[in-house]
């Protein structure tokens, strides 16, 4: 029972802070609110016994990605930010949204009907560092190496973009 209360607590904190992210006028507050979302998602991962993913979530998202967002926001200052950048959605977008919601609902209903062969409780030893490491370095080794290639391409791309910027200024 305390587990259920904790689940609803963290899930509602994640949803409310995500809503604040997309509706706030101030981008800095939006980034800080996204940090709250990331931490509550990490708590949900812990409740799913995915300890390694929870740790990586806090390290990479809260520690690296959102700090990068904050740096860029401080670099750009506030003059590039529009006073109100909420777009007005026309009737076509409303139709699109209704379509999207109905597709999601249908997919969720189909998934709920086909989850009978799954377990009723989360596996407790699956998310340890040992199990995930064994899986990464045996059956997912090629994908792991391709990820390192993608990160290398990302580094080269960002350095190239920044270099071009300096050349334009000079």
């Amino acid at each position: 029972m305390p587990e259920t209360i904790l689940f609803y607590l963290f899930a509602s904190v994640a949803l409310i802070s995500a809503l604040y992210v997309i509706f706030s006028k101030e981008p800095t507050y939006a980034v800080l609110s996204l940090v709250v979302t990331m931490f509550s998602l990490a708590a949900l991962y812990v409740m799913l016994h995915a300890y390694f993913i929870a740790m990586i979530q806090i390290l990479i998202y809260a520690g690296a990605i959102l700090v990068l967002f904050l740096f860029i926001l401080m670099l750009l200052g506030t003059e590039g930010i529009l006073p109100s950048d909420q777009a007005r959605l026309g009737r076509g977008w409303c139709f699109f949204g209704v379509l999207l919601v109905s597709i999601f609902t249908a997919e969720l209903a189909m998934v709920f009907q086909s989850t009978q062969n799954l377990k009723d409780w989360p596996s407790e030893i699956l998310g340890t560092v040992e199990n995930i490491g064994r899986s990464i370095f045996s059956e997912h080794l090629l994908a792991f190496e391709l990820i390192s290639l993608i990160l290398l391409i990302g580094i080269i791309g960002v350095v190239n973009l920044a270099h071009k910027k300096e050349a334009d200024n000079a």
């Binding site: 377990k119 596996s123 699956l126 995930i132 997912h140």
Partner: peptide, 11 residues
């Protein structure tokens, strides 16, 4: 991954 007892989802 956690409910299906398969580590691929977490990877």
């Amino acid at each position: 991954s956690s409910y299906g007892d398969n580590v691929t989802g977490q990877v």
